[in-house]
Design a protein around this nucleic acid. Structure first.
Lengths: 129, 129
DNA sequence: ATGAACCTTCCAGTACAGTGGAAGGTCAAG
DNA sequence: CTTGACCTTCCACTGTACTGGAAGGTTCAT
């Protein structure tokens, strides 16, 4: 299977697949006589795993960690659990931050709903901010 | 006022102030005979405005827009209102996305809480993802 | 034999908001 | 007179996940 076919099978691009290989997420593919990369079918599963990991909010670096643990013959289960827990905590913090920011902006926006440009003094940029 | 003093007065760094000038957020400062930047007091207010804009979730590019409107002698009020409204919509979308992701990860994490590594088949990387 | 479609490598750039460091000039105190 | 703190410019780099393009090789159909 050439790189273009793998790209199509996994819904990505050849550029991205080469990038994954360079980043250590995909093992260097076998080469045909021509020098073209020659993928086996399980590459599809591997790329699928990368995509599922991304959908779970993991970074490529974290996905790479999991993949490398697996390559060392170990089961990455507990590491995956830890990563997911960590990601959950990060997400909660991020959501709380965004909700607070939303509050702030919402108030500023409400104030700006009654525009009185005349009250803008010359020495400040904008009284709404 | 030299750049280090302005940095201290505004709680930022000289690097950042030069970066703001280069980005068009601060007008090029006057220079002393030595070539040192010489800021007037209103630079403090300007940097403060930039920081308040950031706290309101605006990008430096958007803050620059507001500043440039003001420099053209116009009141940026209505533009600011539009920017805040836009930011509010973006934030709502972003929060919704993160909440959905949180749901996904939370479920994966709950599944991973009962680790049964033996059920990990050899041909998949991790059954939790 | 030639053109299209595919592949290769390598270099560079995207967005964002800075940060790090080198090489050198300036100023006040001791 | 020298030391140290401050300033200048310029270039490169950070992190994330790619993306674009150039220059050239391969494969297959016409």
């Amino acid at each position: 299977m050439r790189i273009g076919q793998l790209a199509e099978a996994t819904g990505t691009t050849t550029k991205t697949l080469r990038f994954y290989e360079e980043s250590g997420l995909l093992p260097p593919a076998e080469r045909m006589a021509s020098g073209y990369r020659d993928y086996t079918d399980d590459a599809v599963g591997r790329v699928g795993f990368i995509h599922r990991g991304q959908a779970a909010g993991l970074t490529l670096a974290q996905i790479g960690q999991i993949l490398r643990i697996r390559e060392h013959g170990q089961t990455p289960c507990s590491h995956v659990r830890d990563l997911l827990g960590e990601r959950l905590r990060e997400l909660d913090a991020q959501i709380a931050e965004l909700l607070a920011l939303r509050e702030t902006i919402s108030q500023l926006h409400a104030q700006a709903a009654e525009p009185e440009p005349d009250t803008c003094s010359a020495d400040e940029v904008c009284r709404y901010i």
